[in-house]
Design a binder for these strands. Structure first.
Lengths: 144, 144
DNA sequence: TCATGAAGCGTGTATATGCACCTAAATCAT
DNA sequence: ATGATTTAGGTGCATATACACGCTTCATGA
């Protein structure tokens, strides 16, 4: 308390857990995005393609839930993928409310091409941190 | 391989470390933003105020470095804070290139008001995960 | 001094993220 | 059957994030 700075509210913890985690996420994102650069995909987009590849056609809300994303966020994240023709979104037949998102052939190709680059990023990150540690941390934080 | 799904590239790891971390960051962000809601601040903005409070006036680039943010990102993040009168950005005197960002009185007040809410979020998160674990993880990931 | 390179910033563009609010379609209770 | 409720989506708005490109100002060496 000689500095003249700080709200002087007793300070205490210095680190914002949220800030720390957000920063780490930005760093990782940069690593993956760099690796994926040649494919023109971002890691966010890659993740969506990957989910659709594994699960098949999904209504937007389900897809959002799979990715733990806000529904409207997912809807908008689909836009660039649709524009590039990697994903097709069609009205549901049984339930007219549903809009099913599904991979196109081009989408499957793009995913296949991106996989090695993604693995490279996974590998690079694995050299810095134990993926299992990240997973267990994330699990502790939970979804909500 | 009976499913008809998947690129069939041998699969292997199922979890994208980046995706896992991004998801966790989104969850934490939501916790903090909810807690800060009454103050009208986001956790990102809170973090900026906090840095400025501790370090005093800083040129934008330095401020960005402190937060491990891209320079232009920081510049834009200052906008809403400036609009709300919590931060003032003025041209440097010694060096006309510098643009110094500094807390206003209102900014200091806002920060002081936000602190208890932030602590509440810190506490809630601490119940789920060990902050030290998050820090060591982030440190392992490093900045670049 | 003055050309040149470096340092600090801003803008354009594009994606990512979530909230508040609204519409339409299906479901359900009476 | 029909009115209320629930479910699936969309839009407007605001912030967050980063890259590419370009401008201004400072420092420096010939």
């Amino acid at each position: 308390m000689s500095d003249g700075r700080g709200t002087g509210t007793g300070s205490g913890e210095d680190f914002c857990t949220c800030g720390v985690l957000r920063r780490a996420a930005r760093t990782l994102t940069s690593v993956y995005d760099s690796a994926l650069k040649p494919t023109g995909l971002r890691v966010t987009q890659f993740a969506i393609l990957r989910i659709l590849d594994k699960a098949g056609p999904l209504p937007v809300t389900r897809l959002a839930a799979e990715a733990a994303l806000e529904r409207t966020t997912m809807a908008r994240n689909l836009d660039p993928l649709e524009r590039r023709g990697l994903v097709r979104v069609a009205a549901g037949e049984a339930d007219a409310r549903n809009r099913l998102a599904e991979l196109t052939e081009a989408g499957r190709r793009a995913l296949a091409e991106a996989l090695p680059h993604w693995r490279r990023a996974q590998e690079e990150v694995r050299r810095r941190v134990d993926p299992a540690a990240v997973r267990s941390l994330a699990e502790a934080i939970g979804s909500h």
